[in-house]
Design a protein around this nucleic acid. Structure first.
Lengths: 131, 131
DNA sequence: TCAAAGTTAATAGTGATTATCATTTATCTT
DNA sequence: AAGATAAATGATAATCACTATTAACTTTGA
């Protein structure tokens, strides 16, 4: 039997993560919800994010400047990380359409998931900066 | 003109990183060198690792349990991260042999580098654990 | 020998994350 | 509706990786 969910704050946190494509940090979620839920505690945000991770409802994308960035979309796709503005954006990558990874398998490594991250400069930063 | 290097500790730290394929953390480097260099300070390890990063002599692979894991090999290759024992191992991946990433480029994203990480269970853990 | 530049140990500080715990809230009986 | 139980939370302190500071020590080149 699935665990029931008694908590409106938990829902709010999950919805906040899922309703953005910014791949937010825990602090972003906290600061975003705080105005509409004034008695929200940062600990609650961390606690529930940890819960969602365990449940597989969200995934960790990367760690930028010591902050973990998460994603509510768990279907396979890749990410672009801008080393200038620290934005994390989605990118559909044909390379993702595979379940077979011969190179790790050859080493006896059982692949559960694969992450591809492109590091570089996003479109906005390219425009803004001198060429 | 390249900055000169007057420091034997700096060399020891760089050599420690390069002479292992464990993709160590700063703490690992510190604890590995401490017996032979008793007056080594953890701050020195962090400071020099930051320096090597700036110089492009080492790269950051991932962040496991809050710890940054680094690699002295900067030529393109992928990594396997065991979610059981936290080992990080190299894997040669044909997918690395490309300089052209059409999917991010389509979004105006300029790719500087790409990281592929396979998450799963390493050979040792597979043997050791019940099937 | 000497001064300037490089490097360091020791230490304190920072910021993200986690643990603790008393309190509040929701659910389940009766 | 009321009491019992379990779930969830806020507030706070603690932890842990990492960074900054600073005074002392080294190396170099003159």
């Amino acid at each position: 039997m699935a665990k029931r969910n008694f908590s409106s704050k938990r829902n709010a946190i999950y919805n906040a993560v899922c309703s953005t494509d910014t791949h937010p940090s825990a602090r972003w979620v906290y600061e975003t919800l705080k105005p509409s839920i004034p008695d929200l505690s940062l600990g609650t945000v961390y606690r529930n994010i940890a819960l969602f991770k365990d449940e597989g409802k969200i995934r960790v994308i990367c760690n930028i400047n010591g902050e973990e960035r998460i994603d509510g979309v768990t279907s396979p796709h890749s990410h672009c990380v801008c080393t200038c503005c620290n934005s994390v954006t989605d990118v559909d990558d044909n390379a993702q359409n595979s379940d077979d990874y011969p190179a790790p398998a050859k080493l006896g490594f059982t692949v559960k998931s694969r992450d591809i991250i492109y590091y570089g400069i996003c479109a906005k930063c390219s425009e803004r900066l001198p060429h």
